[in-house]
Simulated assay, not measured.
Amino acid sequence: MRTLSLQKYRRAADFVSNHARLVDQRLFEYYFYNGSSEAVLEALIPYQNEDGGIGRGIEPDLRTQASTPIATSVALQYARKVGASWKHPFIQKAMAYLHDVYRQYGFWPLKIPEINDVPHAEWWHFTSQADTFEVNPGAEIIGYFHAYPQVLEADLFSIWHEQIFTWLEGDGPLEMHDALCFLRLAELMPQPGKSQILDALRPHIRSTVTRDPMKWSSYCAKPLWFAPTPDSPFASLLEHSIRQNLDYEVCSQQPDGSWNPFWAWGQYEDVWETKAKKEWAGILTVKTLKTLADYKRIEGLVPEKK
């Protein structure tokens, strides 16, 4: 079993402090130095637009200033990690935006035309407007309405639940981002729906997660993405692969203390190299350190309990 030395942990902490975005610095402080949830939420506010939605590059591969449902879901991932309350204006405005988008489209589009106005990863390029429910980010967003139902003007959960279970009962493996959205939904969904989703996800996880360590250096569904903590619902299902993935991450730390993205845009190389790649390094370093700490893979370090 490989572990990260305290010296290498400190090198990673220095990288976060010196190079990560402010929101990722604040999340790191929340995890490891008893930082406040309010500080994380304050760092999210600059990404929020007048319409309440989130844009402005919170997702580094998607750099449009305009609000999008997917960028708003990314911001809400941060908010949920620190237990953000409905009372916070950031949450109220973000959820109102998602409600407005649903009223306009009847679902939450993954892509919008404004994406093409600025540099972006090739997979984010907008070609045509979707006209039906998209699991990514729709399933995840339904989870946020479970967490913050106060904004709803009518009970839409029966409609939404029919949509998500129709998807889960379909044939074939789930695409990894769809599977992650279902998993985030399950985290926020009350029983018995939570267990029903996890049970339906289980056979998909076996085929969606990439278990071959030789493939982890390229973009794929790493086991730790689906079980970032030992108490994750699928930690036991992926136990052997998780141990291997933890060893792999310990060995993947860069000399500057960071963990780098294992993908590239395929276009706009200057923006990728000078901005997005560096932002992702901060995000991944915080994420990896938290996971290594939770699995007790950092020597002599116990993260603060929240």
Rank of each mutant, 00 (worst) to 15 (best):
A13V: 09
F90R: 06
Y144T: 09
E134P: 01
F145N: 02
I197E: 00
E239K: 14
T229G: 07
W124R: 14
A66P: 02
L292V: 11
Q163G: 04
Y9E: 05
A94Q: 03
E273A: 08
S73D: 07
N260L: 10
S67K: 09
N18T: 10
A75L: 01
D117Y: 12
G57N: 05
V209M: 13
C251D: 11
H161W: 14
V271I: 11
A13E: 15
K306N: 14
K275I: 15
K93S: 10
P173M: 10
E269N: 04
F262R: 12
T3Q: 03
G193V: 04
P137S: 03
K194A: 02
A43H: 02
I54T: 14
T229H: 13
C251A: 15
P46E: 10
S5H: 08
W280K: 00
F28P: 07
E299Q: 07
L27R: 00
S36Q: 12
Q65H: 14
Q196M: 14
H99M: 05
R10T: 03
G106H: 05
D294M: 13
G172M: 11
P119N: 12
I197P: 07
D100C: 12
Q254P: 02
G106N: 03
E153A: 10
L6E: 07
G53T: 11
S217V: 13
Q65I: 01
A13K: 13
A154D: 09
Y102L: 04
H88T: 03
G172E: 13
Q191Y: 00
R11P: 01
G53A: 11
Y30C: 12
S241I: 01
E279F: 05
I112Y: 11
H120I: 09
G143M: 08
R10K: 13
Q104P: 00
Q7H: 13
G143V: 05
I112F: 05
P192Q: 03
I164P: 10
K222V: 07
V40I: 06
W216F: 12
P223D: 09
L6Y: 10
T285G: 10
G300L: 04
Y248F: 15
W216C: 12
T166W: 04
Q150L: 12
W124D: 03
S236Q: 15
P192V: 06
D117M: 07
M95A: 09
P233E: 15
D131M: 04
D294A: 15
E114Y: 11
H177W: 00
F90W: 13
H120E: 10
S73Q: 06
A264T: 13
G257R: 10
W160Q: 06
L292I: 05
Y295G: 08
W259V: 09
S258M: 03
R80T: 09
D199W: 09
P149T: 11
R10V: 00
I115R: 03
F15H: 12
N116V: 01
F15R: 01
A154I: 10
I58H: 08
L4T: 06
E304W: 03
S218Y: 12
T210S: 14
P137I: 10
P203T: 06
R211K: 14
Q92E: 09
C251I: 04
I205P: 06
E279R: 00
G52W: 04
